[in-house]
Amino acid sequence: MTLQLVLLIAAALFAIGLYGALSQQVLVMVMMGIEVMINGVLLAGGALWFFLAPTPDGQTLLVVILAAMTVEMAMGFAVATVIHRSRNSDMTDAATELHG
């Protein structure tokens, strides 16, 4: 287990999540993509903490990442609810008001 190896796995998770967030049509699936991306960031943060600077302070950054994950999920579900209520759809293609 080396820093490079863990970072590679984190990069793989991030790229998979990016693919999902870009390619999925259903809002909940887009959120899953973003979750996988944040998952990769969390893993990379943990690896950098452990291999480079294992001080107590560094862990607080991981707490921030966890909080970001929670906020993303809650707001994502709220937006999905609004779109579902107004369009009766859960697809991203139904929400294009801001499109050019």
Binding site: L7, A15, L22, S23, Q24, V26, L52
Partner: peptide, 29 residues
Amino acid sequence: MRHNKHRSAIIAVFVFVLLAAGALLIPWP
């Protein structure tokens, strides 16, 4: 449930290569 598959895959692979290169090439302290 997918749209725009190919371009998404290309972007994802590019990002992975970029991040992997960073992980492997950076001289970590």
